[in-house]
């Protein structure tokens, strides 16, 4: 049955886009989780939903507008935290509710849209076009190349900002770069799991991996493996059981987290 399913073009695109997004979310999500920005993805995703609605309202390709809005939101959250002494979770909460509010107002003003705007809420990986797949591949490749080029600076700033500054790293610039990349990643990943479940892709595989891995490199590899496994298995499961892929992907990754917690509590994965 597996090989039969793989013959379908839509399934090939779904698996290719899904696994690519899985890798991207694991890598970017690792830096967010370690910077205590776990809900950052959620806030950006909700804001970008406002961007999707705005794009549809203005007759612009919705994901392009979502990219613009998500980047503006990501930078705004960071600016609000820095300039107005507002805590990170409060800034995230403001941005999270603003995006949905903007979307609801625009949907109301437009009197509804001809396309299913709610596919952006819950994801539609099985419906991704060849154009979307190319966009996902290009965006993932670009972001991963930047991370690879600035790996030490990003990791050092994440580990200890003060020491990173002393070593000559422009920490503020790196922080803005990380949130900029997170904004791009969120919109790229919306097609896979939708706005509502996006933070699961950022957080769950990384939290699981942090329990199993020791160093940064091993942990990120474990996170990528967990993420790809849950995406592939989730898509296959959704096809065979006719259920929403976003739900099955996230539930599978939660199962892996539960299994890791159980294994760790029994000492199965105890670090030497």
């Amino acid at each position: 049955m597996v090989f039969e399913v793989l013959e379908y073009d839509f399934m090939q695109r779904a698996l290719l886009s899904g696994t690519t997004i899985a890798v991207l979310c694991s890598v970017v999500g690792m830096f967010l989780v370690l910077r205590r920005y776990s809900l950052f993805g959620d806030a950006i995703a909700h804001s970008s939903f406002g961007g999707v609605a705005l794009g549809l309202f203005m007759g612009i390709y919705p994901l392009w507008m979502a990219y613009v809005v998500s980047i503006i939101s990501a930078v705004l959250i960071t600016r609000i935290r820095e300039k107005f002494d507002v805590s990170g979770d409060a800034a995230i909460a403001v941005m999270l509710s603003s995006g949905i509010a903007v979307a609801l107002v625009i949907i109301g003003l437009a009197g509804g849209f001809s396309i299913d705007i709610f596919s952006f809420l819950f994801g539609s990986i099985l419906l991704v076009s060849a154009h979307d797949t190319i966009l996902v591949l290009a965006m993932t490749g670009s972001i991963l190349l930047v991370i690879l080029a600035l790996f030490r600076q990003i990791l050092y700033s994440t580990f200890d900002e003060k020491q990173a500054k002393v070593s000559g790293i422009h920490v503020e610039r790196i922080n803005y770069l990380v949130v900029f990349m997170a904004g791009l990643t969120v919109v790229t990943a919306i097609q896979l799991v939708g706005v509502l479940l996006i933070s699961a892709l950022f957080v769950i595989p990384n939290v699981t991996a942090m329990m199993l891995g020791r160093g940064f490199q091993s942990t990120i590899i474990i996170s990528i493996v967990i993420s790809i496994s849950s995406v592939i298995a989730g898509i296959m499961l959704s096809y065979s059981l006719n259920i929403a892929p976003a739900g099955s992907i996230v539930l599978l990754s939660i199962c892996m987290l539960g299994a890791s917690m159980a294994a760790k509590s029994t000492g199965l994965f105890a670090r030497r």
């Binding site: 370690l34 205590r36 580990f159 200890d160 003060k162 991996a209 942090m210 020791r214 160093g215 940064f216």
Partner: peptide, 9 residues
């Protein structure tokens, strides 16, 4: 000041 569970050797 770093996260105690920061995965770094």
């Amino acid at each position: 000041h770093f996260e105690r569970n920061f995965p770094i050797t």
